[in-house]
C-alpha cells in the first residue's frame, strides 16, 4: 500500500518555540565540549610554566575568545536552567506520603547550585 509521507521542512525547528528551544538545547552540547577543551588548554598551559600561562591569559583576553566564552556560558546556562526545569518531572519525591510540589524540587536544585557556587567561590577567593 502506497502512502504519502510528508517531507520534513528544512526550517521545521522554527515552527514552534519549543522546537527552537529543543534545537538550541541540542546545540548546547557543542559549547559544553568547548568548555572541556578550554579547560584542558588551561591545564596544559599551567603545567608548561608561568610564561605559557601568561600566553594563555593573553589569548583568552582576545575579543573573539571572550565572545565565544560568553556565548558558551549562555548555552550552558540554557542547558542548566532547562535541566532544572524538568527535574520535578523526573523526580517524584514523597515526604510523609505526600508528593513534594514541583516548585520545591526546582527550588532545591537552585539552592544546591548556589551552595556549590559559593563553595567554589570560597575555594578560589580565600
Amino acid at each position: 500500500m502506497s502512502t504519502y509521507q510528508r517531507p520534513l521542512a528544512l526550517f521545521w525547528w522554527l515552527e514552534r518555540r519549543s522546537y527552537l528551544l529543543f534545537v538550541l538545547r541540542e546545540l548546547s552540547a557543542v559549547f559544553v565540549a568547548w568548555f572541556v577543551v578550554y579547560l584542558l588548554l588551561l591545564v596544559n598551559a599551567v603545567s608548561d610554566g608561568a610564561a605559557s600561562y601568561q600566553e594563555f591569559l593573553d589569548w583568552s583576553g582576545r575579543r573573539w575568545v571572550v565572545a565565544v566564552n560568553v556565548l558558551a556560558m549562555l548555552f550552558v546556562l540554557l542547558h542548566a536552567i532547562t535541566w532544572f526545569g524538568l527535574a520535578p518531572r523526573a523526580m517524584v519525591i514523597r515526604v510523609r506520603g505526600r508528593r513534594l510540589p514541583p516548585v520545591q524540587v526546582v527550588a532545591a536544585h537552585y539552592l544546591a547550585w548556589l551552595v556549590l557556587s559559593a563553595v567554589v567561590a570560597w575555594l578560589v577567593l580565600r
Binding site: 514552534r16 519549543s18 522546537y19 528551544l21 529543543f22 538545547r25 541540542e26 532547562t82 524538568l86 518531572r89 523526573a90
Partner: peptide, 18 residues
C-alpha cells in the same frame, strides 16, 4: 531530548514527557 511537546499535546493529561 525532553522537548515536552508530547505532554503539551496530550488531551488526557498523561504527561508522557514526565
Amino acid at each position: 531530548t525532553f522537548v515536552g511537546e508530547c505532554s503539551a499535546a496530550c488531551p488526557k493529561g498523561v504527561d508522557p514527557a514526565g
